[in-house]
Computed example of a mutant assay.
Amino acid sequence: MHHAEIEAIVEVHRQAFGEAEGAEIAQLARDFLDQSKTISISAERDGKIAGNVLFTPFVFKDHPDTSCYLLAPCGVSPKYQGHGVGKEIMEASINHLKSIGTDALFVLGVPSFYPRFGFTPTDKQTPYPDLLTTPEAWMTLELTAGSVEKLSGKTIAITPFMHSHWWDTSQHG
């Protein structure tokens, strides 16, 4: 991925998350894009990146052979929100991750958005289970039948996402 594409993706997340969270989420996206195993899916409109979603490896310590990814962040430029960009990147992402043999996706996100793509609340642990005060925000999408049921125990996200504040749902309403 070349520098201009990285900058365009970072800018999409900065705009999508607005004044309050934009700078921090943009930096997180930049940190994720520096990781070799990050999967980035974008949608273009008018020759520019209009939306982007990133997926990073998510490991269940007792089940290292189960291929899981964490979805974060998912952002659409305000100019293109409400025009199907989010749907396009989510559907393309799910198809791509299935095609590479991913077993399950996890997201700590908006409970009203992700279920339309098949995500359901899960009781599997986050890296900081004590900080999950909004359990309906922690969801999974099983891509390989039977893979999620067997998962248990401690989970590990990539290093930039292992800071506890990312997992504290008490700060979001």
Score class of each variant (00 low, 15 high):
1 M>G: 15
3 H>G: 11
8 A>K: 11
9 I>Y: 08
9 I>E: 07
14 R>V: 08
15 Q>Y: 04
16 A>K: 03
21 E>R: 07
23 A>C: 12
23 A>L: 14
23 A>Q: 15
25 I>H: 09
31 D>W: 04
31 D>M: 14
32 F>L: 15
33 L>F: 11
36 S>G: 10
38 T>A: 12
39 I>M: 05
40 S>C: 15
40 S>V: 15
41 I>P: 00
41 I>K: 03
42 S>H: 11
44 E>S: 13
50 A>P: 01
51 G>W: 01
51 G>V: 07
53 V>D: 04
55 F>N: 02
56 T>C: 05
58 F>I: 04
61 K>E: 13
63 H>Q: 14
64 P>E: 06
66 T>V: 15
67 S>N: 07
68 C>K: 00
72 A>P: 01
73 P>R: 08
73 P>V: 09
74 C>L: 12
74 C>N: 10
76 V>A: 05
78 P>D: 08
84 G>V: 00
84 G>E: 00
85 V>F: 03
90 M>F: 02
91 E>C: 07
93 S>K: 02
96 H>I: 02
97 L>H: 02
98 K>P: 00
100 I>E: 03
100 I>N: 11
103 D>A: 14
103 D>W: 06
106 F>N: 04
107 V>Y: 12
109 G>Q: 05
113 F>D: 02
117 F>T: 07
117 F>E: 06
119 F>N: 02
120 T>R: 15
122 T>Y: 05
124 K>H: 15
124 K>F: 04
130 D>E: 14
131 L>C: 07
132 L>Q: 01
132 L>E: 06
133 T>P: 10
135 P>M: 10
135 P>E: 05
138 W>A: 10
140 T>M: 13
140 T>K: 05
141 L>N: 03
142 E>P: 07
144 T>G: 00
144 T>P: 00
144 T>A: 11
149 E>V: 13
149 E>K: 10
150 K>M: 09
151 L>Y: 04
153 G>S: 08
154 K>V: 09
155 T>E: 03
158 I>W: 06
159 T>S: 12
164 S>Y: 05
170 S>N: 06
170 S>K: 11
171 Q>I: 10
173 G>I: 13
173 G>Y: 14
